[in-house]
Amino acid sequence: MTTAVSNRPLIKNGSKGPDVSRIQTALQNAGFSPGSVDSDFGSKTEDAVRNFQKAHKLEVDGIVGDNTWVLLQKYSKVHVAQPGDSLWKIAQNHNVSVDAIKKANPNIDEKNLQNGQEVHIPNAGGPVNATPQVQKYKIQPGDSFWKIAQNYNVSEDSIKKANPNIDEMNLPIGEVIDIPNARGGGEPTPQPHTSPSGDRFKNAWIFFKNIGFSDGATAGIMGNLKHESTTLDPHQIQHNPRTGKPDKRYPGRGIAQWESKKAPIHSRWAGRWEELVNWANNHGKNEYALQTQLEFIMYELEHEPATVSLLKKYGGVPGLKKLGINDALIAFLRCFERAGTEALGTRKQYAYELYNQFKGVKV
């Protein structure tokens, strides 16, 4: 439960903790930047409080007491966690970044969201002294919308909407795009330690190499995975073939597009997504983490009866690890994905591109 305003402690310069982060988030939403949302009430936060109080004709003392709390609550949006929620899902629903939610909720355990838990949403409310800002950004080699969104602390979806003519799968290097900045956020703070989506392929490559796969076998497997999810996105939902947009009526989920039996449209292989979720839960893992999904691929290759049976002709997993690009691509396609020769040319193209990009990478 949120603490009643009348019971709130006085928050001032030198205060620290979750209440400070909520104040900083509300100030951002209201258009008064406190600097970083860091749970530390310093001089920048005090200046922002003073400016907020002045704009609202309150006593200007830089201290958050009852009257200031009341008005700040107008800019404090709270999401009540529901079954099946994740920070990524909440972030997408509210058009903010996961990192921004983490900063606004410093004590949150993203792997153990509780049903009914209150999650404070940054960049909510209507600022009184700021208008939406749009910044310009020149696309650099290796960029992706995900990487740019994280650096500017906005959502991928907001960048896509601001640049409808840009193909996210083929970003034109040197092209200048619009970055819609959250209201009142001021200059966005780059997040230097986040992992861009471009690194997902490198991380996946290293994962397979670390457990003994040859460069060729790794490329063959990853060519298939890139066909299923072109950005290797663990949250990938299968696209509607007519609209080209994610559609939950279709069964594919995750980097390997495991089929969900809950989707209205599915095949006889449906239910593998639910098996992944159960496996992740039983091992205390996040089913939407790239590492978890890669580990589950290996679990299926070694333990899922149908996959194990089909893989015998290639010598099982030990044999698969030694195959070249083409043979590994076909083996994974037939034994793991069970998709015949669907889009074989595209899968091979991806496999060779990844091979040329990552062969010899140190692990």
Rank of each mutant, 00 (worst) to 15 (best):
N170V: 05
W258P: 07
A270K: 03
G252V: 13
E304C: 07
N281H: 15
Q24F: 13
A4G: 07
V80H: 06
N326C: 05
N282I: 09
V60R: 02
T307L: 09
I211G: 06
E300C: 15
N326E: 13
F336K: 07
A204G: 11
A289S: 14
F145E: 02
G174K: 00
A217M: 02
Q135F: 15
Q357E: 10
E175Q: 15
F145G: 02
S21E: 10
S195K: 15
E337P: 02
N95L: 07
R200N: 15
K209Q: 03
L71G: 06
P196S: 12
N112S: 14
M1E: 12
S197L: 15
D99L: 09
I159G: 00
Q53N: 07
N129R: 11
Q238L: 07
A182N: 14
F32E: 03
L290D: 12
K285F: 08
Q140R: 09
K285D: 09
P127T: 03
A104P: 01
S6W: 10
Q293D: 14
G216A: 00
H283K: 15
K54Y: 14
L311R: 12
L310D: 06
G174Y: 01
K322A: 10
F201T: 10
A26P: 05
I325L: 01
K321E: 09
Y137C: 00
N356F: 05
G252H: 12
I179W: 06
Q150F: 11
H94L: 02
Q349R: 09
K89T: 06
S155M: 04
W258K: 08
Y314P: 04
